[in-house]
Simulated assay, not measured.
Amino acid sequence: MRVPTTTDVPTSSRPQSKSHADPFAELPTPESFCCNAVLTRHVVPAAHGYAFAVTKGTRFRIIDLKGEQVVDFMAWVHDKPFTRLEKMSTAYTRYHLSGVQPAVGESLWTNADRPLLRVTADTVKVHDMTFMSCFPGLYTKQGLQGHRSCAQNIFEAMQSFGMEDILDIAEPFNIFQNTPNYSLKRLGSSKPGDYIEFEALEDAVCAVSSCPYDLDGFNGGVITDIAVVIAKKK
Rank of each mutant, 00 (worst) to 15 (best):
M1P: 01
R2W: 08
R2K: 15
R2V: 12
V3W: 06
T6Y: 10
D8E: 04
T11S: 08
T11H: 07
S13K: 02
S13N: 02
Q16T: 02
S17F: 07
S17P: 02
S19V: 05
S19L: 05
D22K: 02
P23I: 02
F24D: 14
A25Y: 06
P28K: 02
P28E: 03
T29E: 03
T29Q: 05
S32K: 11
C34V: 13
C34G: 14
C34I: 10
C35Y: 02
A37L: 04
A37I: 04
T40G: 04
T40L: 05
T40Q: 11
R41M: 13
A46W: 10
A47K: 07
H48E: 14
Y50N: 13
Y50M: 14
Y50R: 14
A51L: 10
K56A: 09
K56M: 07
F60V: 05
I62Y: 12
I62W: 07
I63T: 14
I63W: 13
D64N: 11
L65I: 11
K66D: 04
E68W: 00
V70R: 03
V71D: 09
M74R: 03
V77T: 14
H78C: 14
K80Y: 11
P81A: 12
F82Q: 05
T83W: 06
L85K: 08
E86M: 05
M88N: 08
S89I: 01
T90A: 08
A91W: 02
Y92F: 05
R94K: 14
L97P: 00
G99I: 06
G99R: 03
Q101E: 09
P102I: 00
P102S: 00
G105D: 00
E106Q: 01
S107I: 00
L108R: 00
L108I: 10
D113L: 01
T120H: 02
A121W: 03
D122H: 04
V126R: 01
H127R: 11
D128S: 14
S133Y: 03
C134P: 06
F135A: 12
P136A: 11
T140Y: 05
T140S: 06
K141R: 06
G143Q: 05
G143A: 07
Q145H: 09
G146Y: 04
G146N: 12
H147N: 11
I154E: 15
A157Y: 11
M158T: 02
S160A: 15
F161D: 07
F161G: 10
G162T: 04
G162E: 05
E164G: 01
E164A: 05
I166V: 09
L167I: 05
L167T: 14
E171M: 11
F173C: 11
I175L: 15
F176Q: 07
Q177Y: 09
T179S: 15
P180A: 11
K191R: 15
P192E: 13
P192R: 10
Y195C: 10
E197W: 12
E199G: 10
E199D: 09
A200M: 02
L201T: 03
E202S: 14
E202T: 14
D203Q: 12
C206W: 11
C211N: 04
F218Y: 06
N219Y: 13
I223T: 13
T224S: 15
T224L: 04
D225F: 12
I226A: 08
A227C: 15
V228Q: 03
V229L: 06
I230Y: 00
I230A: 00
K232E: 01
K232Y: 00
K232I: 00
K233C: 04
